[in-house]
Amino acid sequence: MLELRLVQGSLLKKVLEAIKDLVNDANFDCSATGFSLQAMDSSHVALVALLLRNEGFEHYRCDRNISMGMNLGNMNKMLKCAGNDDIITLKADDGSDTVTFMFESPNQDKIADFEMKLMDIDSEHLGIPEAEYHAIVRMPSAEFARICKDLSSIGDTVVISVTKEGVKFSTKGDIGTANIVCRQNTTVDKPEEATVIEMKEPVSLTFALRYMNSFAKATPLSHTVTISLSSELPVVVEYKIEDMGYVRFYLAPKIEE
């Protein structure tokens, strides 16, 4: 028996909006500690890892570990029927081939349940090793989204370089080149507006902008984004979900032959 009641149902709606274009089908894994997902995009270049910890739910019951295969497009269709202020409850019986999403309006005057068919998904789970990152950049998520969108109108790839001067996002295309440098800036009114750069070593990596723009769909989940870089390792683009967990995107760098 599985029953997860999320008072801030809009969080789940935002999570689906963030990942549905990157991943078609995925297994949601539910255990006593939380609700999680790990999935690769169809071309196996990027990986998304989601964690929603049990303590973030108002009610969390998961009698035994269960993996539920869902088509994220279909799941998104169902979650779009929930209001932004609705409480969302996920329910599944042991051995059932369906999951039920229950939506309750804040004043309990409307209760809806949507039952969705589960699917068998043969997915590979990857082991993500602990890594020491050469540079970690924390910046406003909206700023990062803006940079990726702007650069993708010029080129297809972004070079992200961290030096003691700051973090530089560069691209080039047929019409010309673009460079955007963000310096560390902690003298801001609110902590979420800060740009903080922790650098152990300078690092410079090249990534496909198409994926970065896809990751930026998680912007509504968090005011800040954390970008962790090490040479010859996938970048980690992390959006923390307040009091609950995170959505992390991993993207393999492009490598010179």
Binding site: A46, E124, G127, T157, A252, P253, K254, I255, E256
Partner: peptide, 14 residues
């Protein structure tokens, strides 16, 4: 230009 490797080149299957 640079080549795009798969993420599985960096992370091993469990």
């Amino acid at each position: 230009g640079p080549k795009q490797p798969a993420i599985t080149k960096f992370f091993s299957k469990l």
